[in-house]
Structure formats: C-alpha cells, structure tokens
C-alpha cells in the first residue's frame, strides 16, 4: 500500500512535470497550422455561450469566437476541435496544452491572469453575478437571503463573491457546493436550496433551457459582482495571444464600421480606409499578426460581427432574449470598445 501509494504519487508528479514540456514545443500558431485545427476549450453545455445540440453541433458566443479564430488562421471555421471542460478542469487543460484557447464563459480576475500561467485576451461579454429563486420564495431581494442555503457550482468565482457580498452585509450564507453543473441545477430545481447563484446571463440560459417550468423562477434584481468574460490563452506565446486578442477586436470593430456577414465582400471596395484595412483591401493588417491580409474578412464572413454574434446566440435571435446592456458598442452607451485596427 505504502509503496504503491508512492509510485502512484510520483507517476502523477511526473505527468504534471512533463506534460507542459511536451506541449510547449513549437509556437501555438505553427502547431495549429500543422494539426489543421484549433483546440477550443468550451463549457459542458451552457445555451447561448457554448451549447451542443442532439447532432453534436456546438453553438454560442464562446464557440463563435473559436470558429472566428479557425476561419482567420486556417481559412475554415469548421476546423475546430471542441473540448468540453468543467470549471475545475479548464485552467489545467489550458496550462497543459490540451486546448489552444479557452473560450468558456470564464471571468477575468487578477489571480487568474497573474498566477495561473494564462493571459486573458479581451472581453467578449460583460456579466455580473445574480441570484435565481423560486417564484413563491419569500425573498424578493438578495438582502433577504440571509442564512439561506444557496446552490452553487464549485470552481467558479461565484463562491468567493457570494461570501464577500454577504459578509459586507454582516450576514452569513450556507453554500451547497456541487462539482458538476448538472447536479447543482438538479439540486436547486428539486428544492434543496432557497436560491441558485451564478452569472446573470447563465441564470437566464438555465431558466430558459433547464428549468422544469421557466415561469416558476425569478431572477432577483441585484447584481453583486463584475464578471467580465473572455477567451484566455497560455502564457509564453505572445504571437498567439495577439491573434486571439485582435480577432475579438476585429469583430467588435466590424460592428462599429457596419460590416456584416452579408455585406463584408461587397464592402471591400468601400472608400473608408478603416473598412479597407479590416477587410484586407487596404493596408495589410494580417502580416503583422503572422496571418494573411484577409484574416478578419474570413472571420466576419464565418460568424458575423460582434453584434450579429450576440443577437444570434443571446439576443433577439435566440430564445434567451438578453438585452445588449453593457455589451452594446461604446457609441451606443455600452462598454464594447476595440482599439483601432491599424
């Protein structure tokens, strides 16, 4: 037992120690081109962000970012290898080189950015943590959830926010923490907890897709935290970091310039230099990123601009009907702002 335990332990340490070495050989872009696919870490199923249908097709805002990357880098939005990851596996999968980009409704925080061997690239969704309760609940405000039992999934920023918020109120809560997303939902919908907490957009998605009767649940008005979500890449590869970051910016810039999936081709001859630069008919913006000049054009033709991606997956074109809110362009009162593509 003793010896076997040590053997097992050292084997595990060996795996931990050697995996990054193996994965780190060669730049991510070269590896992606060589393998002909982008390995994309997504959620295990969250409608609107990364959800899978009965035929195994992934759709959502997070998955569209990966498709956009594949279109820009490989010329084919279909060349994505999807890796569904739960919230505990996600960072290890990225660190170990299992995925090239983690596009999985993941909150950008200092700890994660500075100490987990990864870099967040850009923000694709401005979210905040909220609470869902059954309609007949006595609580109509989060403040009334003192001492309540609250179902939550482990491995998220929400566990800590939950505590911070109630501590500031001088109150306590009793979290019931589940490893799997599905179990946490099942427990809540069977009435184990008085409330369920996660990001508001996820709450809307959960209520719409997972609740036995969506009308039986309400989302409380308070939002207790900032949860900026966005794709992350491994540290140590600045070129890949720049590609993912500018891909997101290009999609936002495209919306600002009025370039859509439908008109992208025809706008190549637009007199506007900014449009020309983005679509590759003017200055070559792709060369600096190690790509060709039509990288952004292909991405926009594959998934549309940011606004189109939003409306299709989360907004008016989806069953979630989320308002743009903070995710509108900065010119329309939102926070979406891309540095100039030039």
């Amino acid at each position: 037992m003793n010896i076997a335990g040590w053997k097992c332990c050292s084997a595990l340490i060996a795996v931990l120690a050697l995996t990054p070495l193996a994965a780190h050989a060669g730049k991510t872009l070269d590896l992606v081109r060589q393998q002909g696919r982008v390995a994309c870490g997504v959620s295990t199923g969250l409608a609107g962000f990364s959800g899978v249908d009965s035929k195994g097709n992934w759709s959502g805002l997070d998955t569209d970012i990966c498709r956009g990357i594949a279109a820009a880098v490989l010329g084919d939005p279909g060349k994505v290898k999807w890796l569904p990851l739960n919230s505990q596996q996600r960072f290890t999968a990225l660190q170990a080189g299992e995925v090239d980009v983690l596009s999985r409704n993941t909150t950008w925080t200092l700890t994660r950015d500075a100490s987990m061997g990864l870099h967040f690239t850009a923000i694709t969704y401005y979210d905040g943590q909220g609470f869902m309760v059954p309609k007949q609940s006595k609580a109509s405000s989060v403040k009334q959830l003192r001492n309540a039992e609250i179902c939550v999934q482990s491995g998220t920023t929400t566990e800590k926010n939950l505590n911070d918020y109630f501590r500031a109120q001088g109150a306590k809560v009793r979290p019931v923490v589940f490893e799997s997303f599905e179990a946490s939902l099942k427990a809540f919908f069977s009435g184990r907890c008085q409330a369920y907490t996660t990001d508001v957009s996820s709450l809307v998605s959960i209520r719409d897709k997972e609740a036995p009767k969506p009308g039986d649940y309400v989302i409380l008005p308070e939002v207790i935290s900032k949860e900026p979500l966005g794709p992350a890449v491994r540290r140590g590869d600045d070129e890949w970091f720049a590609i993912v970051k500018w891909l997101v910016f290009a999609l936002i810039e495209a919306e600002e310039l009025g370039i859509t999936q439908a008109n992208a081709d025809s706008l190549r001859s637009s007199p506007n230099p900014a449009v020309q630069r983005l679509l590759g008919s003017g200055d070559d913006s792709g060369r600096l990123l190690g790509l060709d000049r039509e990288w952004a054009l292909r991405a926009i033709k594959a998934v549309g601009n940011y606004g189109e991606i939003f409306e299709r997956n989360l907004g008016s074109g989806s069953s979630l009907k989320l308002p743009r809110g903070s995710n509108a362009l900065w010119t329309k009162g939102g926070l979406m702002y891309a540095p100039p593509v030039r």
């Binding site: 960072f91 987990m116 061997g117 491995g155 800590k160 923490v177 427990a187």
Partner: peptide
C-alpha cells in the same frame, strides 16, 4: 463532491480553483 457535501476533496477543489495551485492541493 457529487452530492455537494463539503468533504476534503470538495474543499481542495474550491481552493485549487481560487488559487490555481493544482499540484499543491492534489
């Protein structure tokens, strides 16, 4: 962890995720 009881593995999982220190927690 499957049924939401805060045993050692559950606490280690949470700590692992807050700190990102997988090798240490494991």
């Amino acid at each position: 962890v499957a049924v939401g009881y805060p045993d050692l593995v559950s606490i280690a999982n949470t700590s692992l995720n807050q700190t990102g220190q997988a090798a240490e927690c494991i």
